[in-house]
């Protein structure tokens, strides 16, 4: 029974992820892998290989993801934000779980990218 509920969640997660565009998908995947760590806007735009300005990433993408409660943003200072995936989201918590159990090597890659500064 529990297995069935989990499969349903995974199915819904696949649907949700495929409904998002490249940028949003990349953000959620990266953030889910490095959870519970949070990143700043600049770090995030570098992490997903975003070519535009991080301000335009914020206005066009991150604020919308926040509206749909997929990510959480803590404002540390007026210009510094800490962005992390919303682990209370019914589907993204499944994603975070999947990343934690299967994504060890991917997490290493993400972490390495974050440390090189």
């Amino acid at each position: 029974m529990e297995d069935e509920a989990k499969t349903t969640s995974v199915y819904e997660l696949v649907q949700l992820m495929s409904s998002l565009n490249d940028t949003r998908r990349a953000i959620l995947l990266a953030l889910a892998h490095i959870y519970p760590r949070s990143v700043s806007g600049v770090q995030l735009s570098r992490l997903i290989g975003y070519s535009g300005k991080s301000r335009s990433l914020y206005r066009g993408v991150i604020s919308h993801l926040k509206e749909n409660e997929m990510i959480q943003i803590d404002q540390l200072t007026p210009k510094l934000y800490a962005i992390r995936v919303n682990n209370e989201h019914p589907l993204l918590s499944v994603l975070v779980d999947l990343c934690r159990t299967n994504g060890e090597s991917a997490r290493k890659l993400y972490m390495k990218a974050l440390e090189e500064e």
Partner: peptide, 27 residues
């Protein structure tokens, strides 16, 4: 939330880009 939307005044809302229009309207 399970369909990728937020709730505002009991309405489902989302801002989407043009290449998401197909999938997210479906959801």
């Amino acid at each position: 939330l399970r369909h990728g939307f937020g709730v505002k005044n009991n309405r489902l809302v989302a801002n989407i880009s043009n290449n998401e229009l197909h999938h997210r309207t479906f959801l």
